[in-house]
Design a protein around this nucleic acid. Sequence first.
DNA 1: TAGGCCATCTGGTCCT
DNA 2: AGGACCAGATGGCCTA
Length: 212
Amino acid sequence: METVYSDMDSSSCDYFTHDDDDSCSSMRASSPSSSISKPASPASDSQGSCATDLGQTKRRRGRARNEATVHVVKKNRRVKANDRERNRMHSLNDALETLRTVLPAFPDDSKLTKIETLRFAHNYIWALSETIRIADIEQRQNKSRADAPLLLPNLCVMDASDACSWSSSASSSSSSSSSPSYCTSSPSSPAGCFQTDVRQYSYHNFVPGMSY
DNA sequence: TAGGCCATCTGGTCCT
DNA sequence: AGGACCAGATGGCCTA
């Protein structure tokens, strides 16, 4: 079976070869991580074909030099693009890791996968929104009593000017269960906003993939 | 050993 | 033109 990778490898050889002596191995060399090892056979094949092309390119040295320059430029662009993409994925992973830290930890301490983290966060936000919504409803029911204690006495209090208007938006939303509101002011620890025990929603409610 | 998860490379597309 | 974003492909690692 001809894999796409072998196609890509040969194309990259077209990209970086002809006059560039080390161009065939350039992409492999561009990967600092040893964890990524390109398939050995296509790479060696590419190198072999490059060696045979060398004599042909020498005959048209003038033009080949321009091509080589273009290839080197393209190679450098590709290397830079790879580097940016790597950094981009690293920053994405960092964001996911930050998200993990603000989510309740699982008892068995198993690290959530990426998709689990996203689903868990979705359910967690929904559950928190429900907590606020229910608390708001109960508070309204008890408002006749002036000294009625809040159900969630330590709920973080927001300014009216604060964009983080959890309670009002959650209670006013008629479809809060499907589209929970969340804090737009991005608190460092959303869970910290709640001193109340949100685990009234058991871990079962947060199981990734459930109710999704 | 199969399957899941992940990191990386790559080319294409869109945006500034 | 160059960077950001995206999706596909691939190989490595880990676990049941």
